[in-house]
Design a protein around this nucleic acid. Structure first.
Length: 437
RNA sequence: GUGAUUGUAGCUCAGUUGGUCAGAGCGCUGGACUGUGGAUCCGGAGGUCGCGGGUUCGAGCCCCGUCAAUCACCCCA
């Protein structure tokens, strides 16, 4: 009998790691809000046709990485392999573009049937933004700023790599130029690159095969062949990046995997990720909305991998420390327990975010202190036989190891209020606590 | 989809040419310390050796298959 296990390439999230995700997600919501972006949630699966048309029939994702299935009525559905096409679909379905520019962001899982390795899963999670309705370079830089803000908040070292892959005007020209450059040397290229030559010559520039490098070095740069409009757009993006102090590096080798990109493409890369070195990738997609049957609407956005981001944080970043703290109630004996439980219940109701825990098993006091410590509690509330007899409650500062005692009041609320007042009066914790909630 | 490495207690790992090989450290738990937690000492629980099959008198060790992890390619978050 096979042991039950999470499917290949998927992962469970649980404490203490889940606390890191919560913290990251709240920061994401805060930053998106600061830039005026609203959250959008779309289904995890869509009609297969959406991705075939949106992402592109000849892309690797559509050709071999989709989780596609047929439901009971015979429809072909696909677990989303990316977010942009579904967001556009939703926008069109609800006529949101008719209301002017739209700034949206999302956080959630997506699915690709790939062989897992470092920084690559079958169900990864992504934070992404999409800005619709502006062809202007300010929008390109705006979305880059959002990603940069998040990286900055965690002191993550990643470099912004920038490129332009032109539009429907100039890309065919560049494609021809690449064919002219590589075509004559076809047999000298790696096997993979010979295939790229037929399918997507742009991607040849991104090859890692040693035998391709010499030819790539001498390949024509797209920048020299951009049409006037694209060249000006690219120049203005760079001017705005310079003006706002966001550092970047123009890298002619940055192409992207999806067919819908036009003009600006960019990636934030980090060496901490091994072979999958991109934490965040994005770009402009001025033709996508029309391709999916909507009014011609420019757009620009990015996707940032949550798992990869946290990996980079582990390697180079600084994570804000999480304080847990709280009160652990310790009751000794039956009488004490029946007295403490309602008090704990009251504390939880009025503690305003301060965690309150209690051990229900009748463990020895030593063990209870140990467990209290493990929960990350800052303080302990202790009631034993003596306290029951005297209507008192012992309060202990677990960090400084000092203890005091309190007379119980006429009501649970009054007692609880006094306990909380005592807790809030405790001196600032000297050692930051990173234990899970 | 291709190639390589790996899979023994909750965690990190030992296990020699197949024959007490089912172990250690940490963790957990109990006690020394009858109501006070990070130290020390002593005890205890916990494993179908990923799973299935094969070779053998005998397999954690060899062979095949399968599942999963890791790393690289492809590609990308």
């Amino acid at each position: 009998m096979e042991k039950l296990a999470a499917p290949r390439g998927t992962a469970d999230l649980y404490p203490p790691e889940s606390a890191r995700w919560q913290a990251l997600e709240s920061r994401i919501h805060a930053i998106a809000r600061r830039f005026g972006y609203g959250e959008i949630r779309t289904p995890t699966f869509e009609a297969t046709e959406l991705f075939r048309r949106g992402v592109g029939e000849a892309t690797d994702v559509v050709e071999k990485e989709m989780y596609t299935f047929t439901d009971r009525s015979g429809r072909s559905l696909t677990l989303r392999p990316e977010f942009t096409a579904p967001v556009v679909r939703a926008l069109l379905e609800h006529h949101l573009l008719a209301q002017g520019p739209q700034r949206l962001y999302y956080v959630g899982p997506f699915y690709r049937y790939e062989r897992p390795q470092k920084g690559r899963l079958r169900e990864p999670h992504q934070f992404g933004v999409e800005c619709f309705g502006y062809a202007d370079p300010e929008a390109d830089v705006e979305v880059m700023h959002i990603a940069a803000e998040l990286l900055r908040a965690y002191a993550v070292e990643a470099t912004l790599e920038l490129n332009s892959i032109g539009d429907a005007q100039c890309r065919p020209r560049y494609r021809e130029a690449l064919l002219g450059h590589f075509g004559p040397h076809r047999n000298a290229l790696s096997e993979d690159s010979q295939r790229r030559l037929d399918r997507n010559p742009l991607r040849l520039l991104d090859s890692k095969a040693p035998e391709d490098q010499a030819l790539i070095e001498t390949a024509p740069h797209f920048e020299s062949m951009l049409c006037d409009a694209c060249a000006e757009h690219f120049a203005r993006v760079r001017t705005l990046l310079d003006a706002t102090g966001l550092r970047y590096r123009v890298n002619p080798r940055v192409v992207r995997g999806f067919d819908y990109y036009t003009r600006t493409v960019f990636e934030f890369v980090s060496s901490a990720l091994g072979s999958q070195n991109s934490v965040c990738g994005g770009g402009r997609y001025d033709d996508l909305v029309a391709t999916l049957g909507g009014p011609a609407t420019p757009g620009v956005g990015f996707g940032l991998g949550i798992e990869r981001f946290l990996m980079v944080v582990d390697a180079s970043g600084k994570e804000p420390v999480q304080r847990t703290g709280g009160i652990a109630a310790i009751a000794l004996g039956e009488a004490a327990r029946t007295q403490v439980f309602p008090l704990v219940s009251t504390l939880r109701r009025i503690s305003d975010g301060i965690p309150v825990t209690m051990e229900y098993a009748d463990a020895k006091i030593g063990a209870q202190f140990k467990r209290a410590e493990r929960t990350g509690a800052r303080a302990a509330l202790i009631v034993g036989e003596d306290e029951v007899a005297e209507h008192r409650i012992a309060l202990r500062d677990l960090e400084r190891r000092v203890q005091t005692s309190l007379q119980q009041r006429e009501s649970l609320e009054a007692t609880a209020t006094e306990v909380l007042a005592w807790y809030r009066d405790l001196p600032e914790s000297s050692q930051p606590d990173s234990r899970p909630v």
